[in-house]
Nucleic acid binder design. Structure first.
Lengths: 219, 219, 219, 219
DNA sequence: GATGAATGAGGATTCATTCAT
DNA sequence: GATGAATGAATCCTCATTCAT
């Protein structure tokens, strides 16, 4: 193993200004998302991405200085979608159950495009130095949103911070269920969705560890 | 050169008979598990595995016909550990809460050795042709065990089959929470464990989708 | 890693379109022919071929999916040369003796470029699946040409088919003599050529096995 | 390419004295001959030879210091067989035709055991330094024998040396025909043998290049 | 002597990346 | 800007050979 000196490059070598450029970048990111989701990071090659995108390998490198920066772009794109779902959830006044149903439905929807992509992205360590903060920002808002959901459900707006662990557990659980379903092709199953909603509601609706049997429901 | 005979390779090229062989194989699998967990499949190289295991690359290939077969061996080893945990859970007479606590504690324990390994293994499509059934067998027993837990908790031994989706959701959720925790280093946190136990109990203790608020617990 | 798709590879991975490509492919095939002839299949390495051709190893694999496909390309190239010689023989009206002399001279000429190449190529089993028919086609025309020579010499144009064994013996004998000469460096010797012509003429001129002594035996 | 320093080793590291040793060596040489003939030099591996011979790789190296020395042993063995055939030919008083028939029959017989072996051996450059003289000795006697045949046929015992080129052409032709037949599985064909005998007789019976039509035999 | 586990140099092949056109 | 031919470091894997048991 030699010493890697991966000088942090700017995520994008050149900003696409013209329409054609934007279309090219779009095609590359789309193709990349597909291949990354289908084949995993091992199996993700810039040459194939260019092929599938219908552009030359040279063009790909015109917009992305290296492979990792393309992965980062795909990540940003996907995570933006995820956040968009979460931001769109709980906006209007709605019942806690409805809130959870919206959230779950939205998460299933984002994962339906590239079922395995999210999971793969979680595995790829975000590049440190440059866009690291980008991923950090995502994580931050992501957890915030989950905390908001927790608080909204429990109707205690104030203690969002207190629910940190709960939010983490919740996000992990939702991701886990969706990824498992994505893996075995049951992502569209209504039962799955219903059970996931149930689980989230049960968890959030519970009084917590003081009363695990749930014999006496919370008032 | 010579004639290629790409017959479906058995996972092991040669069964280790002597003590030295067994130690070598053990070292390779251990090193492999570590590297696979640390770097993911994309950063998993046989040369580094051999290096870390302290054996020559030739020795590695004496026992594993190719890289994938080593991954399979690691998979089998890890999945066996997971199943061992599950088999050891719920054996004796215990309260449902205790059952879940044992399960969660066990799952956390298996993942504490190679925190990311399980997640990576889930991503690597098991080789089809040969050991594919091995993974199938694991999945099968794995889901069975979860169904048993569900039934045990709900005290309805009979309808284990009915809880198929519940078991799937449950296993996905537990995996998701643990993998998330493994990723951000909170795997040993007591709060995490407590919340995970809570979530499982809440989910299993609930009456299901007819009563999401859990106002009236099941008797 | 990734999914292996070992579809029967076409002999050429990519058709050279630009002038530079064609020059590269040409250089590779030339260098390959030389090395294959000089060192035999066992000493034929793609890295050395690339070196001698003055291109990078990557370029070699850009045009030839694997080592064997390069060997096939070399084979096709050489066998085409051989057939060209045979096609050019016996075209115009000429005496049987002249026919044989042309044939022998031509065969010596083709083998003078890479003396051992033909012999090596005979040893390398042509890849079955794809170009196998290519070699079959060669063998077919090759034997046809020899049958034509036999018939032309014997002036019995009609029974070309009847001379199948004769053609086979003749081609084997000519090849054998030339290969032996190539091995010991006497390929350019006029005596060798004269004797080979003599042998062929004697064989073809004979009446056949009914009269082995050839009319009047030597005392 | 690095500098090869192939210190000439004695062909056999240790002379087999005991019965078991001799049997081991015999098994190795037999297995080696088979594999060398079947797979060619590329594809001939010491490990497989040991496997097929039923001995350990260590034992193989006990008797043969390296791979080449095993090939040399196989060569010597085969060439001895060839010479034995030639020595057994023409010993007793017999007609020229009979002489040729015996020769051809004998050559076909030796090649029937390992049809491709001889051809492969011709391709493997004999090791220079050590046993090179062994091969030289073979070549020498081999050509001598052919010259004897030529002389015997032509009944001019004295000028064996004069027939050098004729002997070379003859040996090359016979080898070529037999190798071709070996390759396409017609080695046992009676027509092939008859035609080969015819060819040799025609060639040797002819007057030479002054009279290619063979109308007037030499006096 | 025999064994076979271990070694590691060497050779096939891939793929990120560059650059001449 | 776009193209795709060329590059070569990195990786997988083989096999001749050694040596501890």
């Amino acid at each position: 193993m030699s010493t890697r000196i991966p000088k942090p490059r700017s995520p994008m070598r050149k900003e696409p200004r013209q329409a054609r450029s934007r279309a090219t970048v779009e095609a590359i990111v789309q193709a990349g998302a597909r291949i990354l989701g289908d084949r995993g990071l091992a199996g993700f090659t810039t040459n194939e991405v260019a092929d599938v995108a219908g552009v030359s390998i040279g063009s790909l490198y015109q917009y992305f200085p290296d492979k990792l920066s393309l992965v980062e772009a795909i990540r940003r794109r996907h995570l933006d979608d995820v956040l968009a779902v979460m931001r769109g959830t709980g906006e209007v006044d709605q019942s806690p159950t409805q809130l959870v149903e919206d959230l779950v439905a939205g998460m299933i929807a984002v994962h339906s495009i590239h079922p395995a992509l999210h999971r793969v992205l979680l595995d790829v360590a975000p590049r440190h130095g440059g866009s690291s903060s980008a991923h950090g920002a995502f994580e931050s808002e992501y957890q915030d949103r989950y905390r908001t959901v927790v608080a909204a459900y429990r109707n205690r707006k104030g203690d969002a911070a207190a629910g940190g662990v709960v939010a983490q557990v919740l996000s992990g659980a939702v991701e886990g269920v969706i990824h498992t379903a994505a893996r075995n092709g049951t992502l569209q199953s209504p039962e799955l969705k219903r059970e996931l909603v149930d689980m989230v509601c049960a968890y959030l609706g519970g009084t917590g560890h003081g009363d695990r049997r749930r014999r006496s429901p919370q008032v």
